[in-house]
Nucleic acid binder design. Structure first.
Length: 427
RNA sequence: GUGGAUAUGGUGAAGCGGUUAACACAAACGACUGUGACUCGUUCAUACGUGGGUUCGAUCCCCACUAUCCACCCCA
């Protein structure tokens, strides 16, 4: 039995990987428009970092982390998310001393030990962004606008933006108490999970999928009605700036976040196309996180999106590359000439293919067609002695005679095509 | 961790107790006498997830295991 990969750890093969490259390139391009820089952070961190930031009692920390003890007896964990690491790096390198405002993005694998299903894997990939040092609501709107921009740039209008506010340490406890009081009267109609969570996380009942909980929480008080003056103003201002930016959104009063560090603005990009995994991207403000991991009291806001889920939304689109030229050769001398020309053209920036095994012209033409090559150059004994060869435009079917040197061939191709090589085609 | 479904070639799959394990796509080669896409021909699973069992006989029935998928929990 051949060795197989690990459950929930997937290979991304050619044919699929072009889509990933497209998503990543689009993220880089859009995020950099908004002044962000990439940061690369390690995959392994001290376990304590995630306990402190995400929260000891969350499911991620309680049962989903890939943690182990290394050879130096250190407790380490393969990162389950990116924000904690980015903020650790921010504090560790004292980036706040140079400028408290840091605008960062990252992309890479994350690890959570969960049962795999559609859009959820044990090694999955996130593209995330974080902005520190600005408490103003216009930054919230900016981040949301950038995220929306990104999806629009991919040609996706399906995931829609939902926002909510979770308040701050001064108003959330009041709301929590009010909600508990409300739920107490209907506790019998809640599902078992929500009963169990009644003390630890009563807010969860709000977005529970069970019919009983949906019904029981119908007239429940809303966090938005309990926001303190500052949080309420922050939320209103965020909405105002979203409108100024022309960014569409909906308020979802029942949206709850799973990580402990969120405050005030929280949001999700949701879709109905991915089964149970409705959140394609999610994030929020985390004004207490940097202090929590030992840094100064500096606010932050950010999000992460699941690349697998974005790729699933792009499932209909075909991504492929096509070579500029295929050189078909007959006979050993012609093959040598084809090889020489290929090398010269590749050095000049063209994507070129040849046949390596001396197959028939028919076979080589089929291969050129299979590769979807733009042009095919056909070289045989006659061409070698003549010094020119037919260059066929594979799309139009027309042929022209070009001298056998890299410059002339390039000129022959550029005469018809001006598209740069190595472009990714989206159909 | 829990529940359900499914496991036949590179892919999509038919077959449901005895068959040369269909068909299609992909792939390779060839024909149309140095030029692809159309057409045609040839080749392509001692093999039906793994291990047991029932049977004269099992891809088809039973059991176990494993894997995958989907859902729950939770989350990107």
């Amino acid at each position: 039995m051949a060795i197989t990969g690990i459950k929930g750890f997937n290979d991304i093969l050619p044919g699929e990987v072009e889509k990933w490259q497209y998503i990543e390139a689009t993220a880089r391009r859009v995020f950099e428009l908004y002044g962000l820089s990439e940061i690369r952070i390690p995959i392994l961190e001290k376990t304590e970092l995630f306990c402190r930031s995400i929260g000891d009692a969350t499911d991620i920390v309680e049962k989903e982390m890939y943690s182990f003890v290394d050879k130096g007896e250190n407790k380490v964990t393969m990162r389950p998310e990116g924000t904690a690491s980015v903020m650790r790096a921010y504090v560790e390198h004292k980036m706040h001393a140079v400028d408290p405002v840091a605008r960062l993005y990252y992309m890479g694998p994350m690890f959570r030990y969960e049962r795999p299903q559609k859009g959820r894997y044990r090694q999955f990939h996130q593209i995330g962004a974080e902005i520190t040092g600005v408490a103003a609501p216009s930054v919230d709107a900016q981040v949301l606008t950038m995220l929306t921009h990104f999806f629009n740039e991919l040609g996706l209008t399906e995931p829609s933006l939902q926002i909510n506010s979770l308040g701050c340490p001064c108003c959330r406890p009041l709301y929590r108490d009010a909600l508990k009081k409300f739920l107490l009267d209907r506790i019998d109609s809640l599902c078992e999970d929500c009963k169990r969570r009644y003390e630890s996380n009563p807010l969860r009942a709000l977005d529970c999928k069970s019919a009983g909980c949906q019904e029981a929480t119908k007239g429940a008080p809303s966090m938005l009605d309990y926001l303190c003056g500052e949080c309420s103003a922050h939320f209103d201002q965020t909405r105002k700036y979203l409108e100024l930016a022309g960014t569409p959104y909906a308020i979802n009063k029942r949206m709850v976040r799973g990580l402990d560090y969120y405050t005030r603005t929280t949001f999700e990009m949701v879709t109905t196309l991915l089964g149970a995994q409705s959140a394609v991207a999610a994030g929020g403000r985390y004004d207490g996180l940097i202090a929590e991991i030992g840094g100064p009291q500096i606010p932050g806001i950010g999000f992460a999106m699941g690349v697998e889920r974005v790729a699933l939304l792009l499932a209909e689109k075909e991504f492929s590359r096509r070579p500029d030229l295929f050189i078909a050769a007959m006979g050993e001398d012609a093959h040598a000439e084809a090889f020489r020309l290929m090398s010269a053209l590749q050095r000049g920036g063209a994507a070129v293919e040849i046949d390596y095994e001396g197959k028939s012209l028919k076979s080589q033409m089929r291969r050129a067609d299979k590769f979807n090559s733009r042009f095919t150059l056909i070289i045989g004994g006659d061409e070698l002695s003549r010094g020119t060869a037919p260059l066929k435009d594979m799309d139009g079917g027309t042929q022209s005679e070009v001298p056998l040197d890299a410059e002339s061939i390039r000129a022959g191709m550029n005469g018809i095509y001006s598209v740069p090589s190595e472009t990714i085609i989206i159909e």
